[in-house]
Amino acid sequence: MPTYNKLVRDKIPQVIEATGKKYKSEILNDQDYIKYLKEKSYEELDEYCAAQSNENAVEELADLLEIIHALAIYHGSSIEEVEKVREEKAEKRGGFLEKIFLVEVED
Rank of each mutant, 00 (worst) to 15 (best):
L28Y: 03
G76Y: 10
D46S: 10
A62K: 12
E43S: 00
V8Q: 05
T19D: 02
E39Q: 13
V8W: 00
A51Y: 00
K84L: 06
Y23D: 06
C49G: 07
Q31T: 13
P2H: 12
K40V: 04
E55D: 12
K6N: 11
V15C: 09
K22G: 11
Y48M: 08
Y4I: 13
L65G: 12
A62N: 10
E44Y: 01
N29P: 03
V82N: 01
G76K: 08
E80M: 00
S77P: 08
N5K: 11
K84C: 03
Q52L: 07
K6L: 12
Q52V: 07
T3Y: 10
L61R: 09
Q52S: 12
H75N: 13
D46T: 13
H69G: 08
T3C: 09
N5V: 12
I68E: 09
E17D: 14
V85E: 15
L37T: 00
I67F: 11
K89L: 08
D32Q: 10
K11E: 13
E44C: 06
S53T: 15
V85G: 02
V58I: 13
K22H: 12
E98M: 11
H69A: 11
Y42C: 04
P2L: 09
Y74R: 07
R93W: 04
E39W: 01
I12Q: 02
K6D: 07
G20F: 04
V103D: 11
E81D: 09
E39G: 01
K84A: 08
K22V: 10
E83T: 08
E91T: 01
G95R: 05
R9W: 08
V8T: 12
K21H: 09
K92Q: 01
I16T: 04
A62P: 06
Y74P: 04
D32Y: 02
K6E: 08
K89Y: 05
N54A: 10
D30R: 06
D32S: 06
E80Y: 02
I27Q: 15
D46N: 14
Q31D: 14
E80T: 03
K89T: 01
E98C: 08
V82I: 07
N56M: 12
E81G: 00
I16F: 03
Q14Y: 11
Y36Q: 00
Q31E: 15
E17P: 01
E43P: 00
I73P: 05
K6M: 13
E17S: 13
E59N: 10
N5P: 09
K11T: 14
N29R: 02
E39A: 03
Y33D: 04
R93G: 02
Y74H: 14
K24E: 14
Y42G: 07
